[in-house]
């Protein structure tokens, strides 16, 4: 029983921290048709920016906001490289991810920055177990803060996707020719859409840095595969939940997928999976879920709208 609660506690926490970056991939890939590798730059860049604010004695709330806003920069860059210079989407993302490795090293002044002793946004609410009053192993305070942040972000995105701006963004991803014919400036939507999704990725980075107590230049490595794995799991889970609007499925599958994936990973580690095999397990997981998704009959795929 204790094992299950530990898995849930750690998995929920990690899942809710990763959820903004999975939401970013859901919007960039599923709505804008842009599998954005630049997300691997946005996550450490958000962490670096947040650590800079915390290092200067800033408020943790300000650190979260600045960290998220910083993500706009790699997003604008990836979008501009693709839309203005005409480079392929993947190459634009790889270039930005590579470029920001050096930028992050410069900002942090080293491969990692310790945030120990600095105030964390996640500890705004105190945990009951830290006062020694109960034997609960849940970090309730931390989970509540994360759930609040994630709730606000998810509600905002769900609403946003149903506005005129959100619909135009999805039109650009689904068929740019159609979008142009109804007067949508497609290039601008790609650039600003990626700026928004990268800000979400950076939010994940800032939250992760505050959660684990340090920012690391390598924390973006493999984010793409993890977000894709989470998304694949989420979409599979949501597909059994009847016919919902595409926007709801997009947002809900990202959040559910992020949490379920992280819980699965924590469980696998607790049950003896060597940490060195983690990436192998993730890749196999992606393969299995993607295969299951693509093997579905065409009619069902069309109904899903993806």
């Amino acid at each position: 029983m204790n094992e299950v609660s530990v898995i849930l506690d750690v998995g929920l926490c990690a899942g809710m921290i990763a959820a903004p970056s999975v939401l970013a991939m859901a919007i960039a890939w599923r709505c804008l048709d842009f599998p954005d590798l630049g997300i691997e730059a946005a996550v450490p860049f958000g962490a670096a920016a947040a650590s800079l604010v915390l290092g200067a004695g800033g408020n943790p709330m300000a650190a979260l906001l600045v960290g998220s806003a910083a993500g706009v920069v790699p997003g604008l860059l990836t979008g501009s490289i693709h839309a203005c210079l005409g480079l392929p989407k993947l190459l634009a993302g790889v270039l930005v991810a590579t470029l920001f490795y050096s930028v992050n090293l410069r900002i942090m002044g080293g491969a990692n920055v310790s945030l120990l002793g600095k105030p964390s946004f996640l500890d705004v609410a105190s945990d009951p177990d830290s006062s020694g009053a109960g034997a609960a192993s849940f970090h309730v305070g931390r989970l509540i803060v994360l759930a609040l942040v994630l709730g606000i972000v998810t509600a905002f995105l769900w609403t946003m996707l149903r506005t005129r701006v959100g619909l135009r963004l999805q039109a650009v991803g689904s068929n740019p020719d159609f979008a142009r014919s109804v007067g949508v400036p497609t290039r601008a939507y790609v650039v600003f859409g990626l700026a928004a999704t990268n800000a979400l990725g950076a939010m994940s980075g800032a939250l992760l840095a505050m959660h684990q107590g340090f920012a690391d230049v390598g924390m973006g490595f493999g984010v793409l595969v993890v977000t894709v794995a989470s998304l694949a799991i989420g979409e599979r889970l949501l597909s059994v939940w009847g016919r919902r609007s595409r926007q709801f499925r997009c947002v809900a599958s990202a959040v559910a997928g992020a949490i379920v994936y992280q819980c699965l990973i924590v469980a696998a580690l607790r049950f003896g999976l060597p940490a060195t095999d983690l990436k192998l397990a993730t890749a196999i997981l992606v393969l299995v879920f993607m295969y299951a998704q693509f093997r579905r009959p065409a009619a069902l795929t069309a109904q899903r709208g993806y």
Binding site: R164, L167, A171, G173, S174, G183, P185, R246, G305, Y306
Partner: peptide, 30 residues
């Protein structure tokens, strides 16, 4: 953008003039 205000093109293949993922209502709204 000024072309989009002046004219609308209907192509031979309606697949290329519509966004397959979007619903009919969403097309009309856009």
């Amino acid at each position: 953008s000024s072309r989009a205000r002046m004219l609308f093109q209907v192509r031979q293949d309606p697949l290329t003039s519509t966004a397959p993922d979007l619903t009919v209502a969403e097309h009309l709204v856009l």
